[in-house]
Amino acid sequence: MAGKGIHIEGLKKRYGSGDTAVDALIGVDMQVAPGEVVGLVGPSGSGKSTLLKCLGAVIEPTAGRMTLGDLVIYDGGWKVKDLRALRRDKIGFIFQAPYLIPFLDVTDNVALLPMLAGKPNAESRKLAMELLQALDVEPRAKAMPSQLSGGEQQRVAIARGLVNRPPVILADEPTAPLDSERALAVIRILNDMARKFETAIIVVTHDEKIMPTFKRIYHIRDGVTYEEAGEGREFE
């Protein structure tokens, strides 16, 4: 598995310094292979969001090592100069709420990322349409986000996360606002997409109803991760 997916070793994050210092991450070790969807579970204050922000190159860890495929992105310091480009090209984000851009239609919400990466508008929209078709929201391609249902919005958000074909996707409680049926549908889509695009997906969740769907689950408690085998139901 080494050299592919995402690999995290001994990741630490300390907020503040001196007497007021707080160690949010003490030792995080994770490895997610391409095409794999793993769960990241933990109570409030356990360090989930901090870990997600470190993985997303939004905040800088204090120590440790992170690699994306063969690319070392952190090893005691950032090894990539343009973190913005790293987020755009190598990391896909799916949020708790879809957070679609309200003034762009469905196609352009998805096509925006390749456009930002410098791809021509027509090519970007073509990539977007392929994903919208794969996620079964192509008929709503010209709709505005406010005209979509919650499930449709989340599928568009997944398409946006996948459109630049990133090696890793960070999904922050993507099923929280959905009912059981739709939550399972989203997880099914994530698994399909992970396999189809060889993407490693980390799903941060509290959602008990999707827990049995993961083959592997990372528990995080007091800034330390523990790996556990999951049931892997539904997607065998």
Binding site: R88, L113, L116
Partner: peptide
């Protein structure tokens, strides 16, 4: 604010 935060997170340049 939220849209701008999302735009920045997904790699939008400041000049955009």
């Amino acid at each position: 604010i939220r849209e701008i935060a999302v735009l920045k997170l997904i790699g939008t340049r400041n000049r955009t």
